[in-house]
Design a protein around this nucleic acid. Structure first.
Length: 419
DNA sequence: CCAAATTACTTCGCACGG
DNA sequence: CTGCCCGTGCGAAGTAAT
């Protein structure tokens, strides 16, 4: 029996803790982890949702993703702070550096979470529980914030262990006994990959705990939830064969940028300006990744929060801003029915590596010209900043030429938990 | 009234060809 | 000629995570 050991390291209330540490270092007199506080976007920009909350705020049932309007109803004295993504990236990197001292095989799962393959290191660092405790204490002492560490026989169990009780704790799920004692009594909604929709269907057939799910009929789940039913049944039984995969071994599959606009856009030309700004940004990231894309998609969210998407599969690959923008515009034209627009987004996928790309004889000259122009623009932006050069349409407007989302590279993403 | 951004994966619905 | 069944391929929508 090949028994593996995986650790999952998760910063407690990451954005809030990191902001707390930063504020204390700058002489702020209060540790915002000790009072009802939250990190939230600015409602004036229509970004007014909770991104992270302190443990005292949790007592007021403040939930991540809920609107500030709702939060303030339940907790008028809630202290609010804006997000600082540069700070979060540094904290994430600092945490990662410490983990590197313990294992060469680490998967960054998000800004505040890492999986650590502990198999090769057990001899040097003793039992995993002891090492987990040491890691937790070192991060607390050296970086000033607490983490939870989960230890399990696979990634799923490590992650679920880390979620058990917070903050500043090490938990293990290393046997069937621990699985049944610690996981099975929990509400099925707590299981990783059981979201709102699945939980609702499960509750309807009287599956309420993770234990209920583990002991239910696989065929029944398959008919109810298709392949997802199989997945969560395996998870409930502690089965997960996914390996800890370092991020540089995982290929990026799509890139997207989207933005909620401060007001509802009703004018098509204005919408197109925002789309150009988004295209410029996402295409720039594509080129930085040394990729070309063949699938271009847009997303629209209306003022009534109705969202729809539209996409086109090209018979070739491109990374050219102007070319992509032409398709983006026709996609928007095709699907926009004139409703006031709240949010716009662009997605690029179906990549090929640039160095593997074979040019077709037809437009080789044009492609080379486009590439030369894009390269010059990218280099100027790299050297003098992202606003050093932009298109004429943005002159004399209050728009930023590169809009949507947050600074590139700050959003470390899922990198394939499964496959 | 209030409701983000980014990525990955699956499922559903429909058109098409045989 | 029409109806039906089937596989396939594509695009839109849905689900889930941080």
């Amino acid at each position: 029996m090949s028994s593996v050991t995986v650790m999952h390291v998760d910063a407690n209330s990451a954005y809030l803790s990191w902001t707390a540490v930063d504020l204390l270092e700058k002489g702020y007199p209060l540790d915002i982890r000790t009072v009802p506080a939250a990190i939230a976007g600015n409602p004036e920009d229509r970004h007014g949702i909770i991104l992270a909350k302190s443990i005292p705020a949790k007592k007021y049932k403040i939930g991540t993703g809920e609107s500030l309007y709702e939060s303030k109803q339940r907790c008028p004295e809630l202290l609010l702070f804006p997000p600082n993504y540069d700070l979060y990236l540094s904290c994430s990197n600092a945490m990662y550096s410490i983990l590197q001292e313990y294992s060469p095989v680490i998967q960054r799962y998000s800004v505040d979470e890492c999986f650590v393959d502990f198999d090769h290191c057990e001899k040097r660092f003793g039992r995993p529980e002891a090492a987990a405790f040491e890691i937790k204490e070192r991060i607390k002492r050296e970086l000033g914030f607490t983490v939870n560490v989960g230890v399990g026989n696979n990634k799923l169990l490590a992650k679920m262990a880390g979620e058990l009780k917070k903050p500043d704790l090490v938990h293990t799920i290393l046997s069937q006994k621990e699985l049944e004692e610690k996981l099975w009594p929990l509400n099925v909604r707590e299981l990783f990959m059981v979201g709102r929709a699945s939980a609702k269907k499960l509750n309807k057939i009287n599956i309420n705990t993770i234990g209920d799910l583990a002991c239910s009929e696989l065929v029944l789940l398959r008919s109810l939830l298709k392949s997802h039913g199989q997945l969560i049944w395996e998870y409930a039984n502690g089965i997960d064969h996914d390996r800890v995969t370092p991020n540089d071994e995982v290929l990026q599959k799509s890139l997207s940028n989207s933005m909620t606009i401060k007001y509802d856009v009703t004018d098509k030309r204005e919408a197109e300006n925002y789309l150009l700004s988004l295209t410029d940004r996402v295409a720039g990231r594509l080129r930085r990744h040394q990729c070309k894309a063949s699938l271009i998609g847009i997303g629209v969210k209306t003022n009534g929060f109705v969202r729809y998407t539209h996409q086109i599969q090209l018979p070739f690959f491109t990374d050219d801003t102007t070319k992509i923008y032409r398709y983006v515009c026709s996609l928007f034209e095709e699907c926009w029915k004139g409703e006031p627009v709240r949010q716009l987004g662009i997605r690029l996928s179906e990549f090929t590596r640039k160095d593997e790309y074979q040019l077709s004889v037809f437009d080789i000259r044009q492609i080379e010209e486009d590439e030369a122009l894009n390269k010059v623009v990218d280099e100027i932006r790299d050297r003098f900043g992202q606003t050093a050069i932009y298109r004429g349409t943005f002159a004399n407007t209050d728009m930023k030429p590169l809009e949507g989302g947050i600074n590139d590279g700050n959003y470390l993403m899922m990198g394939g938990y499964k496959q």
